[in-house]
């Protein structure tokens, strides 16, 4: 629709009326799109107890399959590395002495989870740890930390 000048009253009312209806309908659908994004997720909590520190053998990684992460018990302290490949979400495998390997597209990570080669765009995520009042090691997946992070118990 082209605006013509000078505008008649009829034309002005038609333009503003149509514009308001169109804007209202579009706004209504735009706002309703928010419905499609759930506000409550029934997914496992991102902060959870992983077990007693004594459950994790020193020197080798423990793979928590249902949480998709590795917990390491090193001499300097505990740390947790995600097993979710940053490329397309497959589970990486731990290769002793080398690091991690992804079965889907061949991404390789070193022992710190840094990308060595392959299509993965980012290093594996490191998660912050804490101790629960019961003395359990708690992993917080919302809290990502640097690879020099160690948690002393």
């Amino acid at each position: 629709m082209r605006l013509r000048w000078p505008m008649t009253r009829r034309r002005f009312l038609f333009t503003t009326g149509t514009g308001t209806v169109v804007a209202g309908v579009l706004g209504f659908f735009g706002a309703t799109a928010r419905f499609l994004f759930p506000n409550v997720l029934y997914e496992p909590p991102s902060r959870f107890p992983a077990g007693q520190p004594g459950d994790f053998p020193a020197g080798e990684p423990s793979f928590l399959a249902d949480r998709r992460l590795f917990v390491f018990n090193s001499a300097e302290g505990f740390y947790a590395i995600s097993s979710v490949c940053t490329h397309l979400g497959c589970n990486v495998r731990f290769v002793p002495g080398e690091g991690f390997a992804c079965p889907c597209h061949g991404s390789r990570f070193d022992l710190n989870g840094q990308v060595v080669n392959g299509p993965a765009p980012r290093p594996l995520a490191w998660f912050g740890l804490s101790l629960s009042p019961r003395g359990e090691l708690v992993v917080d997946e919302q809290l990502t930390v640097d690879p020099d992070y160690r948690f002393k118990v």
Binding site: A65, D66, R68, C90, N91, P103, C104, H105
Partner: peptide, 19 residues
């Protein structure tokens, strides 16, 4: 089984060009 990735994990065949 979300904990066990098959090796190789492939998308449907018509997306394998993209993969």
């Amino acid at each position: 089984d979300p904990t066990r990735t098959p090796n190789p994990a492939k998308a449907p065949w018509y997306f394998l060009g993209l993969q």
